[in-house]
Simulated assay, not measured.
Amino acid sequence: MSEIIGVDPNRAQAYLNRGNTFARLGDFEAGLGDYGRVIALEPKQFEGWYNRGSARVAVGQYDEAIADLTEAIRLKPNVGYAYCSRGLSYLRKAERAKALADFEKGLSLWVDMPLCYYGRGEIHLADGKHQDAIDDFSRGIKSKPTAESLTQRAAAYETIGEIQKALKDYRSALSLQPRLKTAEAGIARLTQSRQN
């Protein structure tokens, strides 16, 4: 892609592709630069705004992510995953009402959005709505299990006394991310309480 950019530095798709490669490799800063170039070359391209917004979420630039994702939504208002990413930014900024509205909108547009389920589940968990949290985490996990979502569902199970299910989730989280402190602590806590 860099070779294509060298030959034709005004080719937005080449910057988009290279930015996506950087993002997949975890080099979000480099990806941000390429996405910015896409936007400069083709400001009406949804993918440039969406991808830059998503990269900004990954690096914790939530205000900037919200601005980018809002522009992406303006360009294509019927793309559910853009709402889910923006909702995550709102959630990380503790703007829960806006986050929940975006998660609901994203799910109304596309029912299989793990990120929206995880975000909404996180809100339910914080609100003490443990069964609603379990239901949302379960729907997300069915599509795309993550160590974090498994530990959050385990915490909800633990709170309502479903110890075997909590242990199973903590162990599954460790299989995805060995040495995950929250999962290790959960297993230690539950096995110790069963021995007492």
Rank of each mutant, 00 (worst) to 15 (best):
W110C: 11
I163A: 00
E162A: 08
G60S: 06
G121C: 04
G186K: 01
E47A: 09
L91H: 14
P9V: 09
R11K: 10
N17V: 10
A185V: 13
R189K: 15
D136T: 14
N78I: 08
V57L: 09
A183S: 11
H130R: 13
L69K: 01
E29K: 06
Y35D: 02
I163G: 00
Y62I: 04
K129V: 10
L176H: 04
A188P: 13
Q61L: 13
G161Q: 03
L41N: 07
D112W: 13
S172K: 12
M113R: 11
L174M: 08
L69H: 00
E3N: 11
A67C: 05
V111F: 02
K165A: 14
E95F: 00
I141P: 00
A166N: 09
E122P: 00
R171W: 07
R189D: 12
A185T: 13
N51S: 14
D27C: 04
E71T: 14
G87D: 11
E158T: 04
K181V: 15
K44N: 15
K93E: 14
D102N: 04
Q61F: 08
S172I: 14
D169Y: 00
G53H: 05
H130P: 09
F137S: 05
F137M: 13
I134T: 06
K144C: 09
E162W: 09
Y81T: 13
Q131S: 11
L75E: 05
I5S: 05
R92G: 00
M1I: 11
A156G: 08
G26S: 07
V59N: 10
R24K: 15
V57C: 02
R153H: 06
N10W: 06
F103T: 01
H130C: 12
L91V: 10
A65G: 03
F46S: 05
L16Y: 11
L174R: 14
E95Q: 11
Y90H: 08
K181Q: 15
E3D: 15
K98P: 01
P145C: 03
R171I: 15
E162R: 11
D8V: 02
P178R: 05
G80Y: 06
P43F: 02
S138N: 06
A82K: 04
I141C: 03
G60D: 00
G140M: 02
V38K: 00
L109V: 07
F46C: 09
Q61H: 10
A12R: 12
R194M: 12
